[in-house]
């Protein structure tokens, strides 16, 4: 039963990682940019969620505080994400030549990441802040065995959100515009798609998902701290690359795989080596499939 429990825990962890990975992959899709600031948007989401949940009554008022706090965190993170894009990335777009068009925004992204992390230390101090416990108790499920209520909730919520996202991307005008923009920006503009608006909305969507991931992560780990983005952000980035960066289903798959792998490692004597294994897996997968598990490199047809 230990294996099944670890599997469930792994899926829970992985689902949270996947929520963050989606932000990396969607922004990469539309801008071909690794938004290194995304991990810090995740961290900011955790803090905004923390203050909002506490302000709304915390554990004494779990449903309203939880839901409204998460929504506030989503809005706050979206605003941060949109601002980062507007201030740091958009002015660089279409400038520079050759390799510089890609490298300049990348360095800027790293800079914004450091800036946000230090800003958080300044604003919130470096100490670990306890997160209110909105869920108590353990569910006793058949076959699987014990699963804490919070983890069960995290898993269900993450899956619902990912299904919702898939519908959004496949069925709505925004989704179609985003997919069109990801494959060919010039052609998307020729369709009348206002690419700047779609890019801003992509940042908002990715940041909202990161905020949900952050609140869920904190409910599970019971604390928020300024460097939490680095830990989860790195894993999420690996998940996005593992699944095939730019591919939404790939990010979901990559996240779940990393979560499950991590928990499996913890069952062995090498529990300290989770991140080592994660990166070994990443390297092996990329050696075999450079575009990631679900990524494709298309050949131009004549």
């Amino acid at each position: 039963m230990k294996l099944l429990e670890a599997l469930m825990t792994g899926l829970t962890q992985g689902a949270m990682v996947a929520l963050v990975a989606l932000g990396y992959t969607m922004v990469y899709g539309v801008l071909k940019l690794i938004n290194f600031a995304h991990s810090e948007v995740f961290m900011m989401g955790a803090y905004i969620g923390l203050f909002a949940i506490l302000g709304l009554g915390g554990a004494g008022n779990p449903v309203i505080a939880g839901v409204a706090g998460t929504v506030i965190a989503m809005i706050g993170s979206s605003l941060i994400g949109i601002t980062v894009e507007r201030v740091a990335y958009r002015p660089l777009r279409g400038r520079g030549k050759g390799a510089l068009t890609r490298i300049t925004p990348l360095v800027t992204a790293l800079g914004v990441s450091v800036l946000l992390q230090n800003l958080a230390q300044l604003l919130f101090s470096a100490r670990f802040r306890p997160y209110p416990q909105l869920f108590t108790g353990t569910l006793h499920l058949p076959v699987v065995g014990g699963l804490s209520t919070s983890r069960a909730f995290i898993l269900v919520a993450s899956i619902v959100i990912m299904v919702g996202l898939e519908l959004l991307v496949q069925r709505t005008w925004f989704g179609k515009a985003m997919r069109a923009l990801s494959t060919n920006e010039e052609a998307a503009r020729l369709m009348g798609i206002r690419t700047s608006r779609v890019i801003a909305m992509t940042f908002a969507l990715g940041s909202s998902l990161a905020a949900i991931g952050a609140v869920l992560f904190c409910l599970d780990q019971s604390q928020a701290y300024p460097t939490m983005g680095v830990v989860i952000g790195t894993r999420a980035f690996v998940a996005a690359v593992l699944g095939g960066i730019g591919n939404i289903k790939g990010a979901m798959l990559g996240g779940l795989l990393i979560g499950v792998l991590g928990e499996m490692v913890k069952l062995t004597d090498y529990s300290g080596g989770v991140d080592v294994l994660v990166f070994v897996v990443l390297i092996v997968v990329l050696l075999l499939r450079p575009a990631g598990l679900l990524g494709t490199s298309r050949v131009e047809k004549v």
């Binding site: 179609k176 997919r179 069109a180 494959t183 798609i193």
Partner: peptide, 22 residues
């Protein structure tokens, strides 16, 4: 455009729909 620049990962219907974006 030259070279057609269709959206390869969208279906034919979706390509047409995106054309009516405005």
């Amino acid at each position: 455009p030259e070279g057609r620049a269709i959206f390869p990962n969208l279906t034919v219907r979706e390509n047409l729909e995106v054309g009516a974006y405005l």
